[in-house]
Nucleic acid binder design. Structure first.
Length: 257
DNA sequence: ACGAGTACCTGGCAGC
DNA sequence: TGCTGCCAGGTACTCG
């Protein structure tokens, strides 16, 4: 389940490895993967100039101001070389092949970049912004943290961790958070994400996230709540009875108010 | 406009 | 042992 820290880790590897290489061809896998098979002919012959990240999206910028947008979905994985299971897409470059593997097929290649909220690690994502975005909303805070139009790049793992860190129950109506709580939440999100980026993201037991060089993340060892039965606080964790945004949610009934 | 719910998809695992 | 069925979740969709 790649979220911001995992995608950022992938971005760094790709930029290092692909920058300056010319795209020579591409190959689409089974058509069932694509809602509409993307036409990427215009990329052929251009050179990779940078790889940027926007939320959970990867954007490969090539010469001539063209771009290739990728989304890893929840099981998508990029790897060098054409070998591997569930190969959906291949990008051939000078002396390099980038393969997109995706068992669950939630990933996207060549899609448009949608409208997204601010990057959580940008300075414009601050308590004033969050207050403005949430003060009139009644949905659970966790659902809105995972809403990519409010803030980009946060999914179940990092929403869960951030809310624990900030001491806020995931079901709380977003608009009822106090200003100090919003400030705490912003701080928690930034702290959790920075730390996760530093550790190369999270590789959970079932969802085998690996970077394009096959390396796992190390943040899972530092997780406080997600996937645990006892929190970092030492208390037994609880799962919300009803899912939030269709997702199960773990929290500490003592530390989170 | 908002909030809730569901479809998409398949590997892995619990339970029988 | 082998089967069934449920769960995981990012995004896009529908419905009220």
């Amino acid at each position: 389940m790649p979220e911001l820290p995992e995608v950022e880790t992938v971005r760094r590897v790709l930029e290092e490895r692909l920058r300056g290489l010319r795209i020579t061809a591409y190959k689409l896998g089974q058509p069932t993967f694509y809602r509409r098979p993307p036409d990427l002919k215009h990329l052929i012959g251009s050179t990779v100039e940078f790889v940027r990240r926007r939320g959970k999206y990867l954007v490969v910028g090539v010469s001539g101001r063209r771009e290739l947008v990728l989304h890893l979905g929840m099981s998508g994985r990029l790897a060098f070389g054409a070998a591997g299971p569930h190969l959906r897409f291949q990008l051939m470059l000078q002396g390099e092949i980038l393969g997109f593997h995706d068992a669950r097929r939630f990933g996207r290649v060549g899609c448009p970049l949608p409208e997204l909220g601010p990057e959580p690690l940008d300075s414009c994502f601050d308590p004033a912004y969050l207050h403005k975005a949430l003060h009139d909303r009644k949905a659970p805070i966790k659902a809105l943290l995972m809403d990519q139009r409010i803030v980009a790049g946060i999914g179940n793992i990092y929403a869960t961790e951030s809310l624990f860190q900030a001491g806020i129950k995931p079901r709380r109506p977003a608009g009822r958070l106090s200003k100090p709580e919003m400030a705490r939440l912003v701080k928690a999100i930034k702290t959790v994400l920075r730390r996760a980026v530093k550790l190369g993201g999270s590789t959970l037991e079932d969802a085998a996230y690996l970077d394009p060089l096959g390396r796992p993340g190390r943040f899972q060892k530092r997780v406080s709540v997600y996937g645990r039965s006892v929190g970092a606080c030492g208390h037994a964790l609880k799962a919300t009875r009803k899912p939030i945004s269709g997702r199960t949610s773990l929290f500490c009934p003592i530390c989170q108010k």
